[in-house]
Nucleic acid binder design. Structure first.
Length: 407
RNA sequence: GUGGGUGUAGCUCAGAUGGUUAGAGCACCAGAUUGUGGCUCUGGGGGUCGCCGGUUCGAGUCCGGUCAUCCACCCCA
């Protein structure tokens, strides 16, 4: 049996690979306009980084990490998400102590040992941004607008949900009250019975109608937000309203990573089956400090690139560039040299096998080029190149130098 | 980790009740009289029938196992 890629790991081939590159370019450009700079961090990190940031209770750390002991005896793992590494880099390079605002964007592979399904891979790619040092809700607004700009640029349809998870001051009281409420409920579905212990907030978006019925009466996060959290969440909504962003406040929106505080948001698509989240993000004001840095407010998001690519229609192919070939073996050298010169300015396909004009034109057509440049017996003798414009259906012969140098 | 569907050519798939050399469409290559593409026609190359084992005179077909894949749960991007 031939060796195949590991389960849940995909090769990215043309034409998707071209879309992948385009996405990175455009997303990077847009992030730059919002003041973000590129950062690259290692794919392998010490396991403790994720245990302490993502949270030991989370599914990601609890059962989805590619974790192993390296030859030096270090407990390491392939990063399951991008934020922790960037925060680690921020602290390691003392940018938290430097003060001011630091904004980064990054992209690359993430790894989670899950059962693959539509829109869910074990190695997948994210484009993410992280902003440090700005606590204002205007930053929350800017981050959401940045994500929106990227999606809009690619004409992707989505719905935006936002919520506030509160800060440690207010979330604690809410959690207690919610757990108390859940304990009073009997006959909840098995999932909720499990969730109410280790992730009570998750119960609120249970799909079971019977559970939903009961949760109508459940205490709501919004009623427990402290003054500052409430004020900031309100301000964020004003900002979104002012900028014409359509959104929905979803009190059941909870993010699976422990480090989130206050603003949480998700962009969802209806075209992806069960895995509908295409962007997930939020504020994590305590993470820098909890990883040993100076207390620094922060907010970011990550886009699932594979999921996005499923939503971008393939670009209309337009004929471009040259196909160069020779009819006879004697003309191949000259054809190759011509192709080499054309490549300085045009995408060019060189065909090494001499063959009939018909076969060449067929090949040129199939490769979707605009011009077929062919050297035959006659052209070879006179130093010419026969050109056919496959779109305009015009044909003409020109001296080799003229074809190579002039457009 | 749990449940269900599917594994036959590069791709999409046919191959009733087991029975000779396993097929089609698309794609690829080559031709259809002189150096003219897309359409049409003809021909050609290409298959360990996912893998292992079992039943049988005989297995792509039946049985068991295994692997992979897809969809869903869980969770997330």
């Amino acid at each position: 049996m031939a060796i195949k890629a590991l389960r849940g790991m995909k090769d990215i081939l043309p034409p998707t690979s071209a879309q992948y590159l385009t996405f990175l370019q455009e997303a990077s450009t847009i992030a730059s306009r919002f003041g973000f700079e590129y950062i690259e961090t290692p794919i392998l990190e010490e396991s403790a980084l994720f245990l302490r940031s993502v949270g030991e209770e989370s599914d990601i750390v609890g059962k989805e990490m590619y974790r192993f002991i390296d030859k030096g005896g270090h407990d390491v793992c392939l990063r399951p998400e991008g934020t922790a590494g960037v925060v680690r880099a921020l602290i390691e390079h003392r940018l938290d102590r430097q003060g001011g605002v630091h904004r980064f964007f990054y992209h690359g592979p993430m790894f989670r040992y899950e059962r693959p399904q539509k829109g869910r891979l074990r190695q997948f790619h994210q484009f993410g941004v992280e902003s440090f040092g700005e606590a204002s809700p205007y930053e929350d607004g800017a981050i959401i607008l940045l994500a929106k700009s990227i999606l809009d640029h690619f004409s992707i349809e989505y719905t935006l949900k936002i919520n506030s998870l509160g800060c440690p001051k207010c979330i604690g009281g809410y959690r207690e009250r919610l757990v108390a409420f859940l304990r009073e409920q009997e006959g909840l579905c098995p999932d909720c019975q499990r969730r109410r212990e280790h992730n009570p907030i998750r119960t609120l978006d249970c799909k079971d109608p019977a559970c939903q019925e009961r949760y109508q009466e459940a205490p709501k996060i919004s009623d427990f937000l402290c003054d500052q959290c409430h004020q900031d969440f309100t301000k964020l909504q004003e900002i979104l309203n002012q900028e014409g962003v359509a959104y929905e406040v979803d009190p059941t929106l909870v993010r699976g990573l422990d480090y989130y505080t206050k603003t949480a948001f998700e962009f969802l698509s209806g075209a992806l089956g069960a895995q509908s989240a295409i962007v997930g993000g939020g504020r994590y004001d305590n993470l820098v400090a909890s990883l040993g840095g100076r207390p620094t407010p922060a907010i970011g998001f990550a886009i699932g690139i594979e999921r996005i690519l499923e939503l971008i229609p393939p670009p209309a192919q337009e004929r471009t560039g040259y196909y160069v070939g020779a009819l006879l073996p004697d003309g191949v050298d000259r054809a190759f040299h011509l192709a080499q010169r054309l490549r300085q300015r045009e995408p060019t396909h060189f065909e090494a096998a001499p063959k009939s004009l018909k076969a060449h034109l067929k090949g040129a057509d199939r490769r979707n080029v605009r011009y077929a440049a062919i050297i035959g017996e006659e052209e070879l003798a006179k130093g010419l190149v026969w050109i056919k414009d496959l779109v305009a259906k015009r044909e003409y012969s020109l001296p080799v130098d003229e074809v190579a140098e002039v457009r």
